[in-house]
């Protein structure tokens, strides 16, 4: 089985260093504004500092995948004498709460590690955090090439199930023609 190398981008969070300033939220919202930096609004940020001041809880969480499902889990975790709600650590944009949603439309938000052209050295939140709470890390992982193909097969099978093989082939050839026209 062939192996391919993949760059995994992550942000390590050293929550003990967080002073709760929310500079990360401010720059995230500005970077993702259209045009870039035209507006600022932390409610649109894809990173949110979870805060419960008197309980000494301050830590940033990044928006992950959207889920349409309500969540049943409401477990309480106690760490170092502090009580956390399970929700605190969850990265999902979900129907159970209003976190990680555009304030006007309610559309889900997801961290994209500030993909940019040319690429940013680090996501903007990492650049803005002067207390080094956020540390950008890239690591290379070897993954089976098969996996990607398997994923594609699953995706195509579901499309065949839904639209029928003939429709799907027609659509693909139409798209190919379009692409040829635009490139010529």
């Amino acid at each position: 089985m062939a192996k391919i190398k993949k760059i995994i981008k992550t942000i390590r969070v050293d929550a003990d260093k967080c002073n709760g300033c929310r500079a990360c939220e401010v720059v995230c919202s500005g970077f993702h504004a259209d045009p870039k930096w035209s507006s600022i609004n932390p409610a649109r940020s894809r990173i949110q500092v979870i805060t419960d001041r008197m309980k000494d809880i301050w830590f940033p969480v990044f928006a992950g995948e959207y889920t349409p499902a309500e969540c049943a889990g409401r477990n309480i975790y106690e760490i170092d004498g502090k009580e956390y709600d399970e929700c605190h650590f969850c990265r999902a944009s979900c129907p159970s709460r209003d976190l990680f949603k555009e304030p006007d439309s309610g559309l889900p938000l997801k961290c994209d590690m500030c993909e940019d052209d040319p690429p940013q050295e680090e996501p903007l939140c990492v650049q803005a955090c002067l207390n080094d709470v956020l540390v950008y890390e890239e690591r290379e992982e070897e993954v089976d090439e098969e996996v990607a193909q398997e994923e594609m097969e699953i995706g195509i099978k579901s499309l065949i199930d839904e639209y029928g093989l003939e429709n799907l082939v027609d659509t693909v050839s139409r798209l190919l023609q379009k692409e040829e026209q635009t490139s010529s």
């Binding site: 045009p35 870039k36 035209s38 600022i40 609004n41």
Partner: peptide
């Protein structure tokens, strides 16, 4: 939860 606008944000 509203926006503040910058004239020349870049």
């Amino acid at each position: 939860t509203k926006d503040i606008y910058l004239y020349d944000g870049a």
